[in-house]
Design a protein around this nucleic acid. Structure first.
Lengths: 339, 339
DNA sequence: CTGTTAGCGCGTTCAA
DNA sequence: TTGAACGCGCTAACAG
């Protein structure tokens, strides 16, 4: 059995309260008894029960994070990167991290939120991949529960979020393709119930329009952000009667899949067809050819949303409840001849 | 404020005890009062406090998992995959998952273990990337705390683990390279304080010996499992006076780095130099050329170690405390001409 | 300086 | 069928 305050109290011959205060560093304890208590604690190997403290303090010093997974598994390096940022920042503030993996919009996801929030299992939640009319946000707002979202929810501008300007990101990418002379530019989008998908799509459209190009539905496909989906979509696009000469893609993983499809069709990426991604996951630079992409600082994003959340929880003033980061276009070989 | 049993009790006009029993599904409650209580719970939006339950039950229904990260960030897709397996299995059993990210052998890592274990924050721990004389294992065994390791600890055969036969895995890979006619085969190893690194290295050596090849220290480099380290090591190997014609690598991420180095030196991987990996992360199949590698079922491993741990925690009999999975060699183009 | 009392929210005797 | 009392481990207010 674990050693408790009571054990120390008995061992030393004082009350539990005194032990608590001695260990808590209060100065209203006689130096001699304090020494005895400290020694006993050491000997017995005392360590406070986190659970008991949580109950008493009515705080858990824990952050909840439900990772949306498409299908049973997930392997988007995006999340390892994000998790690292969140985890390290949490550790810096002595917060723990409670992680669940659930598929989006599933009853299981909803249940996870109820359990973490209503069960007072955590002090705040991080929400990622914000969706249109996101039930998670409605839930959290209705509960007045602290949270920070990565990704704006268009319906709601008064809850805290950090986002990346996906519109401008995709605008830059497509603009770049147009500058390279492409006139037939396809787009592989993320599912349109994700708010970031809408922004990026609009960036694509606006760049087309500004470049004097017509938006053509035939050239826009949707994939669930996996390599496989990018692969499938690219195959379909490249099989068109008038195939695109360039494909902008909503994330790197799908872009890698698109590159594979192009290879399979005997095309040389960067020469016969241009491809761009979004995220700049570590592997983008090491793809073959290296992937031109729109970089968002994933690790930093994780750090920042975690920091924002902890500030909200601890009641520190937040200089800004809404943060928009500018992504940057990283030119590599997949979009065309070396720059 | 959150709704508690007390609130319901007051609302209905019964004692807290009765409410607790009614909600707990005990049948020694009058049907009418039960109805009243259920209705009140519904109306008030009652949800039990997880923390209070944990304290009372002396169980947390939570599993701890400290991810070893080299450097501040980590992006090995290996861990997303593993985490997905662990997370889904935990969910299946209504267990939560507490995740920390710490660099191996750091004071922070040790502190995390103390906090989770001694603070009775979790009911069991998952340990990955077992090290030689692993302080984490000593700690857990000394505490008699439930845990399962992914990776054997050679010093200790009596604690539960699941492992993959890395010796045989690397043996197969090198054997394959020898069969292709290679006589000068290098190896990029993992740090030798990781137990799996020793097994894989030995597999490499045994395959060499059986093939009548001499072990040459010059051909063995060590990297910290990152793409960058594989890149560096391969560059050094390929710069030798008598460079290798084949490079076996201890994990896929480093193998991808090695491929990049080969490209940079104007070599065509699969023709001028053969490269093999280990893991079969999703991207291995989509590398250019696709990576010949030793597959270990990462998602499944996560599921299994989590399942084992939960069985240990709940006291269910475990058919086997030591599980060794056989990895399989996946032939693709990076090792040589299409098979 | 130290102990008593009380309470965090819940579950489990034991009596009535 | 119900409630009072107690304990999980800890902290805080209040007396002394």
């Amino acid at each position: 059995m674990a050693v408790t305050l009571k054990d120390i109290a008995r061992h030393v011959g004082v009350s539990v309260t005194t032990v608590s205060r001695a260990l808590g560093g209060y100065d209203d304890v006689a130096e001699t008894t304090r020494q005895k208590i400290l020694r006993a604690a050491e000997e017995l190997g005392y360590y406070p029960s986190v659970t008991a403290r949580q109950l008493q303090k009515q705080r858990t010093d824990t952050i909840g994070f439900v990772i949306p997974t498409f299908g049973p598994r997930f392997s988007d390096p995006f999340f390892s990167e994000l998790l690292a940022g969140i985890g390290n920042e949490a550790a810096r503030h002595n917060f723990d991290l409670l992680v669940c993996t659930r598929s989006p919009d599933s009853p299981e996801e909803e249940e996870a939120y109820r359990r973490l929030v209503d069960g007072r299992r955590v002090d705040g939640m991080l929400v990622v991949r914000t969706r249109v009319d996101d039930p998670r946000l409605s839930f959290l707002k209705q509960r007045h529960f602290p949270f920070v979202a990565f990704g704006r929810s268009h319906a709601d501008e008064n809850s805290p979020y950090l986002d990346v300007d996906g519109h401008h990101g995709l605008y830059q990418a497509v603009r770049h393709l147009i500058d390279l002379g492409h006139r037939r530019i396809a787009y592989i989008s993320a599912p349109l119930n994700l708010t970031f998908a809408l922004h990026r799509l609009q960036g694509y459209r606006d760049a087309l329009q500004e470049g004097g190009l017509k938006y053509d539905e035939e050239l826009v496909h949707v994939g669930y952000l996996t390599e496989e989906d990018g692969y499938q979509a690219a195959h379909r696009l490249l099989a068109l009667d008038r195939p695109p000469t360039a494909i902008a893609v909503a994330n790197d993983l799908m872009a890698l899949g698109a590159m594979r499809a192009a290879h399979e069709r005997g095309l040389t990426v960067g020469r016969d067809v241009a491809i761009t991604g979004f995220d700049d996951i570590p592997l983008a630079a090491h793809a073959h050819p290296p992937l031109t992409t729109v970089r968002q600082p994933i690790y930093e994003i994780g750090r920042r949303i975690c920091q924002m959340l902890i500030q909200i929880i601890t009641g520190e003033p937040l200089d800004n409840y809404h943060l928009i980061l500018e992504p940057t276009l990283i030119l590599r070989q997949s979009s065309g001849p070396a720059q």
